[in-house]
């Protein structure tokens, strides 16, 4: 008799823990051919609220770490992800219906992307910060600082797309609340398991699954969120309404791309700098 497999319950990822939605609701996730894959937790506005609180709580500690340490943590995520390569390939094949070869390429690229961003942790300030030769006896230095809590509407690319938007946000010291791709939410939760076992402090990345159109507006209007990345918003009307809501506390908005980018390409620095503030310090020079 064939062995009956044990199936995993997919939950949310908030503050380093894996709670079910406070509502108790879930929704069906289907594979590429429309067959049932699993039930995912259906996050509500209260889950979004909790996730923002967790991200805010994690921000001082995470942004206060040395860049070197953040780099090592992000590199650790890459290490752990590499060891789960087969699992992710299988998941991508199931949920996207792609070939194992193509899925493998995307998993490899996701690992490499994390490594690439890990290296930026202690370099971004050296590339976008600078000393300013002001006309006077003053020392004047501009350096980048993380903006705070960043809400992310994740793109459809279940692994590489997600990694490509989350890594640049956290490597500089921000914390994130991510609304996972509505069609491919399961990989996001599996990635959360990787992050939970990679020295990443709880609350730095929080992942919600459920209908984007329901959850994202609560994040866009949340007054304790500092920025929002609309990478995964495909509905122009929704994108505009989220940007309007974000204006209430002048969130930094990274607009949705015209079409899903080719995530295999090396990203531009804007993925990081869009969520950085520049701070300029003046100090007199004299005896």
């Amino acid at each position: 008799m064939a062995r009956v497999d044990v199936r995993k319950t997919y939950k949310l990822y908030i503050g380093g823990a894996f709670p079910r939605s406070e509502s108790g609701h879930s929704f069906e996730v289907l594979d590429a051919k429309g067959r049932f894959l699993a039930n995912a937790a259906r996050a509500t506005r209260k889950d979004a609220r909790d996730a923002v609180a967790a991200a805010r709580k994690a921000f001082p500690g995470w942004s206060g770490r040395t860049a070197y340490n953040r780099g090592q943590v992000v590199y650790r995520i890459a290490e752990v992800l590499e060891t789960r390569r087969d699992q992710f390939v299988a998941e991508l094949v199931r949920s996207e219906g792609t070939s194992a070869a193509k899925a493998g390429k995307y998993v490899d690229a996701a690992v490499d992307r994390l490594v690439w961003y890990a290296g930026w942790a202690d370099k971004i300030a050296q590339v976008v910060g600078n000393q300013n030769p002001v006309a006077g006896p003053y020392f004047n230095l501009t350096s980048p600082e993380p903006t705070g809590v960043v809400a992310v509407v994740a793109p459809a690319g279940p692994l590489l797309g997600l990694v490509s938007v989350v890594a640049p946000i956290i490597v500089t010291g921000n914390t994130a609340v991510v609304v996972a791709s509505q069609t491919h939410p399961l990989t996001a939760i599996t990635l959360a398991e990787v992050m939970a076992t990679s020295d990443l402090p709880g609350g730095v990345v929080n992942i919600l699954t459920g209908p984007t159109a329901e959850i994202a507006p609560w994040l866009a209007s949340h007054m304790d969120v500092n920025a929002i990345d609309l990478a995964g918003v495909t509905d122009a009307e929704l994108a505009t309404s989220l940007e309007v809501a974000a204006a209430d506390n002048l969130k930094r908005v990274r607009r949705a791309p015209a079409s899903e980018p080719d995530w295999l390409e090396t990203p531009a620095l804007a993925a990081m700098t869009d969520f950085l503030e520049s701070k300029t310090v003046w100090h007199p020079i004299g005896v």
């Binding site: 070197y68 780099g71 590339v127 620095l269």
Partner: peptide, 16 residues
């Protein structure tokens, strides 16, 4: 260790 870690990160960012 830190020196190797730091410079590893530069290897693919030399254009910056």
């Amino acid at each position: 260790a830190a020196h190797f870690f730091y410079h590893a990160g530069w290897a693919d960012k030399l254009e910056y």
